[in-house]
Design a protein around this nucleic acid. Sequence first.
DNA 1: ATAGATGCAAAAATTTTGCAAGGTG
DNA 2: CACCTTGCAAAATTTTTGCATCTAT
Lengths: 152, 152
Amino acid sequence: MRYGNPWIQQRLIEEGLRITEARRVILGILGKTLQHLSAEEIYFIVRRINPSIGFATVYRTLDLLTKMGIVQKFEFGDGRARYELTGGMEKKSHHHHLICTKCRKIIDYADFIDEEKELINKTEKALIKKYRFDIKNHIINFYGLCEDCRKT
Amino acid sequence: MRYGNPWIQQRLIEEGLRITEARRVILGILGKTLQHLSAEEIYFIVRRINPSIGFATVYRTLDLLTKMGIVQKFEFGDGRARYELTGGMEKKSHHHHLICTKCRKIIDYADFIDEEKELINKTEKALIKKYRFDIKNHIINFYGLCEDCRKT
DNA sequence: ATAGATGCAAAAATTTTGCAAGGTG
DNA sequence: CACCTTGCAAAATTTTTGCATCTAT
């Protein structure tokens, strides 16, 4: 009950969902990491904290949180999804990705998004109006070869 | 040998790769469709054209073309990748996506990217300089609820 | 002729699901 | 106490791989 972002707890309660040990642990992990974790990676960390939590619960929790918009699911093309807390309410703020298609290195960048932000907002508004979508978030990924892989 | 984009053939030849029946058929399909096709969907169309082409070849071809930057692989979050020709050299031009997280509807939009383009180019250049990436392409996806799903 | 490409079927890897049992509000 | 959640293991899905054979160049 302690621990955890009150906003997220709020959201769970709103939906009649429960704040369980597994959810607390998983949210704790997502709130602390600076990386994009796969379900498996999250599961390994979960196990260290509470070995009685199962893999299926990790998947179900991530899925639930993703559908609620609390977590964002990324797929960078290696067939394994990664998960991150959506909001910028923790250490890590919103960022975009630079992905090497060869070695699969992923670089997060957030340095140019000041200019990007404005456009994204504008685009988002226009899309909302035109397509009547309720836009929750977005993904911007650039693909190419990283410095090392270019050389080869 | 006939059929097919000469530029793509060129690229294959450059890399010492061969222009095979399977590749011709698959490129033909990708060049004609206006949709994001999954490997399975592509395979079904392939079969109708030439039943002797196997599923594994479809995967291998898509993978090859993706690595060469000829095809772009998308993962919209349903655990099944989609593929599209990268270039705007065919009917369909570059576009971004609007994805409903509930019903999984995908809307392509290309109407606001005039303004977007400039920023994307600018960002791309900055990223290339800063991270020394050789950027080949990008993905921009907006996630949310579509008009129908909002109502519920 | 030779290196690349393919088909088939088996294997891998990731994610989902059914159901009885357990936990939360 | 009712209803949501979970664990476990089995199942479903998607994608990859080995290897003998075939085919472009």
